[in-house]
Every structure is written in C-alpha cells, then in structure tokens.
Design a protein around this nucleic acid. Structure first.
Lengths: 255, 255
DNA sequence: GAGTGGTCTAGACCACTCG
DNA sequence: GAGTGGTCTAGACCACTCG
C-alpha cells in the first residue's frame, strides 16, 4: 500500500480534539485527517502501537477508535499488514422498481462478475419456507445459494428457495436462475421486496470479506407467477458499502 | 425489568461451545440461550462481572461478546442498570413505491407519534445542496430537521433542504411539510429515493437512542414538481431495528 | 524474523441507576 | 450506598504478512 508521507502523525506531539472519552477524541482526530485530505484513500496509518505511543494512550484505546472507523467504512485493517484509509468503493446502483439481471447489470458497468455456488440441492423445507412458498405436506424445497463477486470484491449473498415441484433439479441451473425458470414456463412477473438494515453476523461477514458488525442490507423477495402462485422466496445480503438501491415513487396522500 | 429465573447461568460450571476465540464462543452461548428460549425478551443477564466469574474469562472478553450481540440487536445494555434480552420491536413497514404521510401511517397502526424539531432555519447552502436543488448564486436554503418518535422510541431523523425561494419562512410549517408546500402550490408529484445501509455515527446514534455502530438505513430523497423542478432534497436516517421498507417490482429482462 | 493486527488478562476508576 | 455498565491502563501471547 501507499507510503504515509504525511507530517500529521510524524511529529511526536499530537493534540486531540477536546471533549468526551479518549477513544472518541482520537476517532474524531483520525476522521478529520481523512476528511481534510491529510491522509488519503490507500494511505497507511501508523501501527496501533506507534499511534498509542504518539498519542500517549493505551493500545486498547487506539483499537477502540480504529474499530469504530472500520465499522463506519472509513478505515480497513489487514491482519499482519496494517491499517489503511479505505479505498473509495464505487457503489453499485440497483433499481427497486424493476428487476434486471445482476450479470447484465454489472457487464453494462464494465465490471467482471462471477458467482460462486454456496449451496444447491433439495431439502426438507423450514417452517418459514413452507409458509412463504405455500408448500404442501411432504413437498421438498430446492435451495440455491450464491456468492456474487465483482473482481476481487464479494458484493452479495443470495439464497433462493423454490418449490421442488417447480425446480426438481437445482443442479440443472446454468448461470441464470430466471432463465432456467423461463425454460420451464415458471418465470415470475411480479415480486414483493422487503428491505432492512442489519448488522452482519460473523459467518456472513466472513463470506463478504468484511468486519463482523458492519451494516448490510437484507432483502427478502417473494416472486409470483401471473397466476398469483409463489415461485421463489429469496433472501439476499448486500454489503452496505457497495450498494445503493434506487426507488422512484409517486406521491400519494398528504404528508 | 423481569427477573432472571433461568438455571442456565445459575450453576457455576458453564460449558461454552468449542471452536474459535473465547468471545465468539461466549457470544454463541448467549445467542443459543436466547434463540432456544432459555432467556427471553426483557430478561436480565447476569452482570458482566458475574458472567466473567462464572465463565472464567475476563470482563473485557464478556464485554466483547455482549457488545457484538448489542450491535446485532439481540441484547440491550442500560448504563447503571444491566444487560437485557432485547424486546421484540414491532417493525414499521413503509412503502417504497408510494409515499404516504408518516403521521397518518403511524396513526393507522395505532401508534402515537410525535416530532421534535432539531433545526429549522435559512442557511447558506452546502455545495451538495446547491447541486441537488439547482440553486442559483447567492440563493439561500431552508433546512428543516426533525426527530420522529413513536411513544418512547425514536424512529428516524429527517433532514430536508428546500430552496428559500420555495420555502422562505421555515418557521411557518405546522406539523406537515408537504401540507405547507401544497398551500404554496409546490407539492411534489414524483421522487427518487436512494437507499443504503450505514453504521450509525455517534451523534445520530445518540439522537436515536441506540448504540453507536448499529446498522441504519439512510435514504436520500429528491422530490420533483410536475414541471420537473426539484422541490426538496431530504436525507433520512431510520433505525435498522425498527423499519422494513417494502417495494413491489415488475420483472424486466432476463436474469 | 521483524512488524502488524487479533485476543486476552487483572485491575482501576468513573458515571449512572435503583431501592 | 451497593451494583451496574463505560472507559482506560500495561502487559502478554498468538496468527498473519512481507521483504
């Protein structure tokens, strides 16, 4: 990574902003250095031990300040290597009113996209899947889980559940679930999406290559055939630092 | 808060699940106790010192496990009081395809809603506001910031920016910004919303009465008149544990 | 092998709550 | 005033990276 030729952390007398606990004052100090350009994307910070010595606080306090900033996406830490100002991720924009192909979407933006299968098979359904898909007694569910990656950056986890009656052989899917559904005459025409912000748990954080606890978008999508029958129930997890969702709305009654 | 009559933390020999760092094993232990009903919403956990003694780890390690769970919304901590299993917040559903009144929305759900003014006045615009609102040189901007509260629970922060030409007297707004705009013939008919997941900073976390770093939804809305002119540029911050946004979509090209 | 972040300890003091 | 979470220290060892 880039050298740190800034004088900010160079001289020994660092003066923290006043007010509040030490770790917040140090956090503000680093935040300010990033936002006024004293240190820039990719720059290395001094090591935690050096910072602790220079600011004259314990390493625990340095870590507390730094980890707050890591969670907020300002810094990144790499085990064994160092702490760096986070690179400006170009955010992916995705429409919430019209569903387009993930792969096509990314290609249009000139980004190479790959998918890794996390899971693909037939299972006994969970109670939630039974309800969401309207499964009959003894009916199995096909689960299809993928990790979406652009370049080196994992962007999202997608876990789809489909009635085994509609998708009896999950292994038969090529790259596109929807293309496969189309072939069998089960292409959905409408979907309801439910969106919320969630702190990433440890397992999903590991898959998405981010610190546990960072903000992510969870989207539950239920897709319907023209007949009104549910085709697909999908839960996706998007990295908060990589996605913007865009929705257009028509204004209704008074506010 | 409710008494903790569970035997789980009662006897002295607690066995943690194996594998990984101590704080993650303790975290999993507590997580399991919550999800299998051994401790329930509102129940108190043993104090950090008691837990540390019982599990035979340091208090720092207990705190690390607990704070992970606080960020994920499983536990809540109250300074001077204790650590509790988080109550099931009933989530507010809000449509992303049709904007309805916050106040009416909540009333329909039988929830008492209040708004606190955080800011209301005329300012020199920021560069971002100038661009978003298409302001001319020397034109001022009206800023209107509110905290939305339901009962005791803060739900959202709304910060709106409107050209001073359209809203020359921000103090004149009653409870409804849109009603006021309507009166002056400036009611928007269309809006674009941009949604992302963000870790809450310390100031916003304090306003929303949650731990800094929890996941929140940030929504930027730009509203337009029928003429295409921008009326309003609003940034809102919603508590991740209190909101679900719902969007309906029509499926487009292949996936 | 030197340096870095990741985990963990034992202890201290402060700010806040609650009966 | 007893008990609780919130902050902070000085120190240790481990796991990982990098030239």
């Amino acid at each position: 990574m880039a050298e740190a030729h800034h004088t900010l952390f160079g001289d020994d007398g660092i003066e923290l902003p006043r007010g509040g606990p030490l770790y917040l004052r140090l956090k503000r100090f680093i935040e300010d250095a990033v936002s006024d350009g004293t240190i820039r994307a990719g720059d290395a910070l001094p090591s935690e031990r050096d910072l602790a010595a220079k600011v004259d606080v314990s390493r625990v306090t340095v870590r507390k300040a730094v980890q707050h900033l890591v969670r907020e996406g300002v810094l990144v830490q790499r085990h064994g290597s160092g702490t760096y100002v986070a690179p400006q991720l170009s955010r992916v924009e995705q429409s919430l009113s019209q569903l387009t192909s993930f792969t096509e979407d990314m290609a249009r933006r000139g980004m190479a996209v790959t998918s890794t299968w996390l899971d693909r098979g037939l299972y006994a359904p969970s109670p939630e899947e039974t309800v969401a898909l309207g499964l009959g007694a003894g009916e199995d569910v096909a689960r299809v889980a993928r990790l979406r990656v652009s370049g080196d950056t994992p962007l999202a986890i997608e876990r789809a559940a489909i009635s085994a009656a509609i998708l009896p052989d999950p292994e038969a899917i090529g790259t596109s679930l929807y293309a496969h559904l189309e072939k069998t005459g089960n292409r959905p025409v409408r979907a309801i999406q439910r969106i919320r912000a969630v702190s990433l748990g440890d397992d999903d954080a590991a898959l998405l290559d981010v610190t546990p606890g960072v903000a992510s978008l969870h989207i539950e999508r239920t897709s319907y055939l023209a007949s009104g029958r549910v085709v697909e129930f999908t839960r996706s997890i998007y990295r908060g630092d990589a996605y913007d969702f865009v929705a257009e709305l028509r204004l209704g009654a008074g506010r």
